[in-house]
């Protein structure tokens, strides 16, 4: 007996066994094709999502004014990014850090509401407007417990320059708003980091004691609420050491 005879003998196999195996051959093939299709579709979806996500993020970045100063738009009043959960009034609010610079940084007071824009960075003294790369080395944040609540904070314009200078000396850190949009004579808003939202007034940022300690180079998103019917908001602030 040799292999040829065995092969010949296999032609006498039962039809039922042959059909059973044949069914398996065809069924399994279809399953594999389906799996391939599903895996290909999943990959395509993943890639599409990634591409869309990256494009979306880029568009957000590009639309975010960083180096340029403010653009005023009434349209943004429809969607002001207002704080939702926090109570800004509970946060201790320091007085205006630099009332002089704050006063200078609100030129919108005398201008028309849609045309006024200014950056706090510009309003700050030249030595305070440190570029990101040239900022001082990172240090831990030292919360100022002497800051009064927001409600008690007097307007920056009314703050005597002498007090500001004193507080400047006391402060170790400050927040410099890089880009700000304003439309009216003065504004009130909020500074928000990942966890908390803080009132600001006249470019003076109040940091809650419970806030995470920022270090130099931190970027904090800043949102302003609607003020006198106009939306005022800033995109970013940078924490620098004085």
């Amino acid at each position: 007996m040799n292999a040829e005879k065995l092969h010949d003998a296999l032609n006498y196999l039962d039809d039922s066994m042959i059909l059973e195996t044949d069914k398996l051959r065809h069924r399994k093939k279809k399953t594999v094709i389906f799996r391939r299709f599903v895996s290909c579709a999943a990959c395509i979806c993943l890639i599409a999502t990634a591409v869309f996500g990256i494009g979306h993020m880029r568009s957000i970045r590009e639309n975010t004014p960083f180096d340029e100063n403010f653009e005023v738009s009434k349209d943004k009043a429809d969607t002001p990014p207002t704080p939702d959960n926090s109570d800004p009034s509970q946060d201790p609010a320091p007085p205006a850090e630099e009332s002089e610079s704050a006063d200078e940084s609100v030129p919108a007071q005398d201008q028309e509401k849609d045309e006024v824009s200014e950056s706090i960075e510009e309003s700050a003294p030249a030595d305070e407007r440190l570029p990101e790369e040239e900022s001082a080395p990172a240090d831990e944040w030292m919360p100022d417990e002497d800051f009064p609540p927001v409600d008690q904070v007097p307007p920056a314009e009314e703050t005597p320059p002498e007090e500001d200078e004193e507080k400047d000396e006391e402060k170790t850190y400050k927040l410099v708003i890089k880009v700000v949009q304003i439309t009216t004579d003065g504004f009130k808003g909020y500074v928000r980091n990942k966890n908390d939202i803080y009132d600001i007034n006249k470019y003076v940022t109040v940091i809650n004691e419970e806030r995470e300690k920022p270090i130099k180079g931190d970027t904090v998103d800043v949102y302003f609420s609607e003020y006198d019917g106009y939306t005022v908001y800033a995109e970013r602030i940078f924490i620098v050491k004085e």
Partner: peptide
């Protein structure tokens, strides 16, 4: 050949389904 085929049939029917399908797929 027919007798041999019947013997192979008998043998394969005693095997597990998985083994039987593999054998038939490979050699038939």
């Amino acid at each position: 050949a027919k007798l041999l085929g019947e013997a192979i049939n008998k043998f394969l029917l005693e095997q597990p389904k998985e083994v039987r399908n593999l054998f038939i797929g490979r050699y038939y």
